[in-house]
Amino acid sequence: MKSTENTCDSPLSTTGLGIGYRDGGGETQLSGQISFQISPGSLNAVVGINGVGKSTLLRTLAGMQPALKGRVLIQGTPIEKLSPVRKAQLLSVVLTEPLASKNLQVSELVSLGRHPYTNWLGQLSEADLQKVREALAKMELGEISGQPCHTLSDGQLQRALIARALAQDTPLMLLDEPTTHLDLYHKVKILKLLREVAHSTRKSILFSTHEIGLAIQLCDHILVLQPGQAHFGSPCELIEAGDFERLFPQDTIHFDAQSGMFRVNK
């Protein structure tokens, strides 16, 4: 953990963050204390076993649900202190839930990403349109920009959703499992596009995933969530520290540190 860096420069950092649910009088905390800081222009993954709280963590980081303990800082400011519009200018999200209107055209969908910058009627300026075109081009959607979303394949839809977040033009993008339902080719394609975006536009990207092998190959840093603890570091650091070995129960698979892959126990 690089706590020496100034948190004001970081698009996202947490200190002693506890995530989970409050209902009635009780609290259900899902994780141990999570402290990490992501650097500008980096691609970061969150990995962990089902139910460890990856989605809950992302929702907490996006300010969509309150933290039980600790703090989430967006460029040094506690997230709950940001106004809704300011927050929308600093972080964008891609969620797993389906769009309410499947009849939206791809270009209409991407244009909605400009909302935090447009006037009370939502009119797009020439600069807004330029951002929309750039986002469409980056996600290779130029040819299908006039199609309604319900006609898209899963991979195209995911790219359209990412393009919408890109058009929002925020220093931080949070994505919840952007590669589910995709085949290996399209998983890699999405992740490579995200890596390219992070490195070329200096946006920081954090996504949750089950594709640990791909994350090890493509990400700058990975947050490994385990019940009661969390480790953040570069893939190499985490492999050396043996964090991936402890990720799953050892009865069916084990981590092969040499190849950076999980192997089935035979």
Binding site: A88, Q89, L95, L99, L112, H115, P116, Q168
Partner: peptide
């Protein structure tokens, strides 16, 4: 403007401010 944002769904609309 808010109605257009709701086309994405309530959660997305909230993240647009």
């Amino acid at each position: 403007k808010a109605l257009n944002a709701l086309l994405l769904g309530e959660k997305y609309a909230a993240t647009l401010g």
